[in-house]
Each structure stands twice: as C-alpha cells, then as structure tokens.
C-alpha cells in the first residue's frame, strides 16, 4: 500500500530579473509501508527541497503529493502539521538535539505535541525508546556530554518515539566517522524495520545509500533510479 506518493512534482522559485529557477523537475516517487529508499545527490542537486516536500513542510509548484492517499495541498496548515507530527520522524545530519535538555527530555519533546496516552505517558515512552537504542543509562545526560554516535542514537529515539510511519533521515551519518556511521545506520535500519516504518535516507554517501532496498539519484532536480552496486563497483579501491 502506498504511504507517500509524488507524481510530476516540480518545485521552482521566482528570481528577480531572471527566469524561475527549477529546483525539482517532474519527480515521481512511491514509498510504501516498510520500504527503505535511499536518495543520493551532490550538493545543490535539490535534496533539501525534496526533503521539505517529503516531510510535508512545503508545497510543490506543480504536481501532486499524497500521504495515505490524501492530497497534501488540500490540507490546512494545522492539519499538515498534525499529520507530520503523527506520521513523520526526522533525523538530521547535525543531530539537532535541543540544548539544555537531557537525552530523556529531548526524546520526550515530540510527545508534547501528541495527545491521549502518548502525551500523559511521555516519560515512560521516552525511557522505553532510549532503552531500544541502548541509551537508557544515559537518559539524564546532556547532549554535550554524549559522543557523536550517542547523540545520533538519541536523535533516532526522538524521531521514532511517536511511532511514525515514515522516517526521513537527512545525511544521518554525515557528522560521524565511518565505523560509528555504520553502527548508527544498522540501528536505524533495525528499529525502522521492527516498527514497520518506511525509511527514506537522503545522503551523498553511496555506501550508506547501498543499505536501502531501492535507490534513487537526484541530479539537477531530476530523480531517477540508480544501480548503487554498479556505482560502488566503479569507486576507486573497489574489488571486481
């Protein structure tokens, strides 16, 4: 079943004294429940713009985005915000943990915007989630006291604590060394699979992209399937 679909999505911005700049052109993408998709692209290829659209943070100039078969453009701002809060979990390159708050308080933050049991039991849910990423012993630690890998695990716990159906990971290993990055990605993959959420990883690292089941390349605003294994094989130092 299609969770998120983009059809013919174009995003352009008007420039003063110049023709409009087309950042994304005719993007088509179908993401189903439990899917793992990677999108690779160089800087300036339109990755951030695509992330905004996938995360229900922006509207396309042309084309249509549907979430759960509902047209995003038909939703009001508040409906879209609530839909995002319930269904989408973000993981950022720079972790973006809230300073001055413990790991536990960071994981509890998305639950402040939930309702019912999720809101009232937010502390227990956050502790459980920290346990799942192996950080229950660091619940009271401040972000600056955690290593990069630990910070990203807190960010993963925070993204997953509301049980999202779609996880958007924006360069999730960009600020980590290779070994820690691999560990974090393995964890992310495992937790996403266990929760049945779809995972979209946006990265410029082909090795990270290769962990997904479907792979796309974004080049000059055009999204196209790519054979990552072939790309990996062409990389310097690769064995035939």
């Amino acid at each position: 079943m299609s969770l998120l679909s983009l059809s013919g999505v174009t995003r352009s911005v008007d420039l003063p004294d110049a023709p409009p700049l087309h950042i994304l052109r005719g993007v088509d993408l179908e993401v189903s429940v439990g899917d793992h998709v990677s999108i690779v692209g160089r800087s300036g290829s339109g990755k951030s713009t695509l992330l905004n659209l996938l995360g229900l943070l922006d509207n396309p100039t042309e084309g249509e985005i549907r979430f759960d078969d509902k047209r995003i453009s038909a939703m009001s701002g508040n409906e879209r915000d609530r839909c995002r809060g319930r269904n989408v979990g973000f993981i950022f390159q720079q972790f973006n943990l809230l300073s001055g708050r413990t790991a536990l308080e960071n994981v509890m933050t998305p639950l402040l915007y939930a309702s019912g049991q999720q809101f009232w039991r937010r502390k227990q849910l956050a502790l459980d989630m920290l346990g799942r990423v192996g950080l229950d012993s660091r619940a009271q630690s401040m972000p600056e006291k955690l290593s990069g890998g630990e910070q990203q695990r807190v960010a993963i716990a925070r993204a997953l604590v509301r049980g999202p159906r779609l996880i958007l990971a924006d360069e999730p290993t960009g600020a980590l060394d290779v070994e820690t990055g691999a560990t974090v990605m393995a964890l992310l993959d495992e937790v996403a699979e266990a929760s049945g959420a779809a995972l979209i990883t946006i990265t410029h690292d082909v090795n990270v992209a290769a962990l997904a089941r479907r792979h796309y390349r974004l080049d000059q605003g055009v999204l196209a399937p790519v054979d990552v294994k072939r790309v990996l094989a062409l990389q310097p130092g690769a064995t035939p």
Binding site: L57, D81, R82, G85, V88, F90, Y113
Partner: peptide
C-alpha cells in the same frame, strides 16, 4: 530559530 524549526518538524502547529 533553530529550536523552533525542530519543534515544527515534530508536528508543533503554528498556533502552538
């Protein structure tokens, strides 16, 4: 500003 952006990504509405 960054913190507000992060909160919005978690589903905080403009009103909230």
């Amino acid at each position: 500003v960054r913190e507000i952006g992060i909160r919005r990504s978690f589903g905080a509405t403009a009103g909230r």
